[in-house]
Amino acid sequence: MTTNPDSDVKTQGTVSPSKATGRHGSGALIGSIAPSAPGAHSEPSEADRRRVEALIHRTARAIDDDRLESFPDFFTEDGIYQVASRFNVERGLPMAQINCRNRGMIIDRIASLRHANIYGKHRYRHLISSIEIESQTGTSMRVRTSYLVIRIMDDGTSTIFSSGEYQDMIVLESGAARFRERRVIFDSKSIDTLLVIPL
């Protein structure tokens, strides 16, 4: 069992390979970016809105605080985490730079960056804004959020590393909000040097 340090609810445990299948066979999960239609909103409750915002802020803070082992716990067991460029999304191209189709793959990404990968030491600072709950269906909400990530290298160099948008599907499980899908659409076409810490 793993515990989400920012949640009062325990997760369902880590994913075993036999269960680790994506819900979308094609793997083509990144959708086109459609502007939200005015008036299409159903109004979430204040409590739900607070849970959504807390999930988004806590996820960013866990990354910035280098508590990356807790990052997978913000996802449901079948949770998807993808990072793709706006350039590809706008052209309907399915490739994503990071394409985790379940929580097991997210755990593997974190294990790889801790134990396998080589890169210049750095950390992030997230600035989050414009959290918008676009729609709610039962306990599931579609949410869009703007982010800015500043990368701080070990030598002190700070640069804007990434700006973009989170396109999330957030579900309430036993009162706790988790990501069933988090699609990070980054605005720039290019990645500076490499992308290892999740955005």
């Binding site: 191209l93 490739m95 730079q97 076409k189 990645i191 490499l194």
Partner: peptide, 8 residues
Amino acid sequence: ILGYDSQI
């Protein structure tokens, strides 16, 4: 074509 990746 499945997509592009650009690395500086």
